[in-house]
Amino acid sequence: MVICDHVEGVVSAPHGPYHGALAHGFACGAHIPVHVSRPWNALDDPYRDYQSIRESLADDWGVETAQDWSRQVEYLLAGQNVGAEADAVLTVRRALLRQQGHYDLVTWQNAVRDQAGGRRANELVELAGVITRYESRFRTDGLLPPNGMVTSVLGYDFGRAVNMARWGFGGRFCDYPTAERIVLRAGELCRQRYSSWTDFSAGYALGRVIRFDEERYGHLYLSVLGPHRLLTANPSSPWWHVPFA
Rank of each mutant, 00 (worst) to 15 (best):
L222G: 05
L90I: 04
R172L: 11
Q99G: 14
T151H: 02
S152Q: 04
H15C: 15
G155I: 00
G142C: 03
P33F: 01
D213E: 12
P46T: 06
Q51K: 14
R139F: 06
E188G: 04
L22S: 06
W69N: 03
L231N: 07
V153F: 00
F138T: 03
E123R: 15
R208C: 09
R48T: 09
V7P: 13
L184I: 06
G142P: 01
G101N: 14
P243D: 04
A86R: 06
H24S: 10
D60W: 12
A179C: 08
L231M: 07
G118I: 02
W108T: 09
S12I: 14
V82E: 07
Y18P: 08
R193N: 07
P238N: 01
H241R: 00
E55K: 06
E180S: 12
G118R: 12
P39C: 01
E188I: 00
A165S: 04
V92Y: 02
V34W: 00
R133E: 01
L144S: 04
D45H: 05
F158Y: 08
D213I: 03
V242W: 03
F244G: 04
S237I: 08
S37Q: 07
D49C: 09
T151E: 05
R48E: 15
P146E: 02
P235S: 02
S201I: 04
W69I: 02
L230R: 11
D60Y: 14
R54C: 13
A205F: 05
D5Y: 15
N163T: 09
H15I: 13
F212E: 13
L230E: 11
N122A: 13
L22T: 01
D44L: 10
L43Y: 02
Y204E: 07
V73Y: 07
R119Q: 15
G203T: 07
R193F: 01
E74V: 11
G203K: 01
I32V: 08
S196M: 05
L57G: 02
E123K: 12
Y103C: 15
R166M: 10
A42F: 07
G170L: 01
V92M: 07
A42Q: 02
P227L: 02
V106L: 15
D175L: 02
L230H: 02
R113W: 10
V112E: 03
L76K: 08
L124S: 14
V2D: 03
A78M: 12
S236A: 10
R166Q: 05
A111G: 02
P14V: 08
F169R: 00
H102E: 14
A128G: 10
Q51G: 08
H24E: 04
